[in-house]
């Protein structure tokens, strides 16, 4: 697993917006989407168009976005089950008895979940991990939490590499246990991985102490976002709020 997250390193106007602006924008946008009644279909069309425009502006390759959408799959299955298990009035579609509220519920989960994932991809693909941390720090996330986050992000690739090396070592020795044996071998390796990670954590703390660490991490962020950056960054979420309000009014 890469320590860069999903970052796509290209130059674009979206990449240049400060992370704290993008975090706030993402949150407002998703909140607007979530509070839109499922039956107001045009509203979701509006959200999708705005997101697409942002994706294009950010110069994100379509395969990257679609591959990442796979995280949704388990809930896709859940959504597809809903029309069959939900209660209430039934409709008949191609000879299948489906619950009306279930069909709407499936649409609700799918539409909102997908828009949420795409919006999150937009953030993670246009923001370097360090900027994200600095943005969270700017948004007053407790310093201890920012510190833990920053160590986690830094050592994600190191620990994953350790895990990968151990798997290669196990497989290259021709390990062919049954299902239970395999589980046991993997878990044993995981135990070793924890001891390794923990001891690395101890050594890092020693390295920090030997460089005069006294309990407070230096600040990451250097400068705030300008007013115009806030305006540009919040344009889409503000439009989304308008759509959400309009959808509510129409739905009444």
């Amino acid at each position: 697993m890469s320590g860069d997250g999903l970052l796509v390193a290209v130059e674009s106007p979206v990449h240049r917006i400060p992370a704290q602006v993008k975090l706030v924008a993402l949150f407002i946008f998703v909140l607007a989407v979530v509070s839109t009644p499922a039956a107001v279909f045009w509203a979701f069309g509006g959200y999708a168009v705005m997101l697409l425009a942002a994706l294009v502006t950010a110069k994100l390759p379509a395969p990257v976005v679609s591959r990442r959408l796979a995280v949704e799959t388990p809930f896709l299955v859940f959504a597809l089950l809903l029309p069959f298990v939900a209660t209430g009035p039934q409709v008949s579609v191609f000879g299948l008895q489906l619950s009306q509220s279930g069909v709407l519920g499936a649409w609700n989960v799918l539409a909102k979940g997908t828009l949420g994932v795409i919006a999150a991809i937009l953030l993670s693909a246009t923001t370097a991990p360090r900027e994200l941390l600095a943005g969270l720090e700017r948004l007053r996330l407790p310093a201890t939490l920012v510190a833990i986050l920053s160590f986690m992000v830094r050592y994600l690739s190191v620990v994953s590499d350790d895990l990968h090396r151990m798997r290669v070592a196990r497989e290259s020795r021709g390990y062919l246990g049954g299902r239970a044996g395999q589980l046991k071998a993997v878990a044993g390796g995981v135990g070793v991985l924890f001891v390794r990670s923990f001891e690395r954590g101890e050594r890092i703390h020693l390295a920090m102490q030997s460089r005069a660490y006294t309990g407070r991490m230096p600040q990451l962020s250097t400068h705030g976002a300008s007013q115009s950056q806030w305006l540009v960054g919040l344009a889409i979420p503000l439009a989304a709020i308008l759509i959400a309000i309009a959808a509510r009014v129409v739905g009444l």
């Binding site: 510190a147 160590f151 050592y155 994953s160 923990f198």
Partner: peptide, 14 residues
């Protein structure tokens, strides 16, 4: 130190 918690988080993630 926060490093230990961070490393444990990286471990859980992996």
């Amino acid at each position: 130190g926060p490093a230990l918690a961070g490393l444990t988080a990286a471990f859980v993630f992996a």
